[in-house]
Amino acid sequence: MAKDFLTALKERRSYYGISKDITVSDARIQEIVEEAVKYTPTSFNSQTSRAVVLLGEQHDKLWSFTEDILRDIVGNAEAFKSTADKMESFRSGYGTILFFEDNNVIAQLQQDYASYADNFPIWANQSNGMLQLVVWTLLEQEGLGASLQHYNPLIDEKVKLEWSIPENWRLIAQMPFGKPTFEPGEKEFQPIEERVKIKK
Rank of each mutant, 00 (worst) to 15 (best):
112 D>F: 04
61 K>P: 05
38 K>E: 15
54 L>G: 00
72 D>L: 09
56 G>V: 07
82 S>E: 15
35 E>N: 14
111 Q>C: 03
95 G>W: 01
120 F>N: 00
77 A>M: 05
94 Y>E: 05
116 Y>N: 10
34 E>G: 06
116 Y>C: 07
100 F>C: 02
74 V>D: 09
64 S>C: 08
112 D>S: 14
110 Q>P: 06
68 D>Y: 02
112 D>Q: 10
39 Y>V: 05
117 A>N: 00
50 R>M: 07
110 Q>V: 01
53 V>H: 05
107 A>T: 03
55 L>A: 06
49 S>T: 03
53 V>A: 04
116 Y>K: 05
96 T>V: 09
112 D>Y: 02
51 A>V: 06
115 S>G: 00
40 T>A: 12
108 Q>R: 11
35 E>V: 05
47 Q>W: 06
110 Q>T: 02
97 I>N: 00
50 R>Y: 01
77 A>D: 15
58 Q>H: 13
47 Q>M: 13
42 T>N: 11
51 A>K: 02
93 G>A: 13
73 I>N: 10
40 T>W: 07
102 D>S: 00
94 Y>W: 12
73 I>L: 15
57 E>R: 06
84 A>C: 07
89 S>F: 02
44 F>P: 03
48 T>P: 01
52 V>I: 08
39 Y>K: 13
108 Q>T: 02
94 Y>T: 14
106 I>A: 05
102 D>T: 00
87 M>T: 08
80 F>S: 07
116 Y>R: 09
75 G>F: 02
80 F>V: 09
45 N>P: 07
56 G>E: 14
71 R>C: 07
92 S>D: 15
113 Y>H: 08
69 I>G: 03
52 V>P: 00
48 T>Q: 09
67 E>F: 04
47 Q>V: 04
100 F>M: 02
79 A>V: 13
82 S>T: 15
71 R>P: 00
104 N>Q: 11
57 E>M: 07
85 D>I: 04
93 G>T: 11
44 F>M: 14
67 E>C: 09
47 Q>T: 07
68 D>M: 06
85 D>S: 14
105 V>S: 01
102 D>Q: 12
35 E>H: 13
96 T>E: 04
45 N>A: 12
116 Y>F: 12
87 M>G: 08
62 L>P: 00
64 S>E: 15
66 T>A: 15
51 A>F: 02
118 D>G: 12
36 A>H: 07
49 S>Q: 08
48 T>D: 08
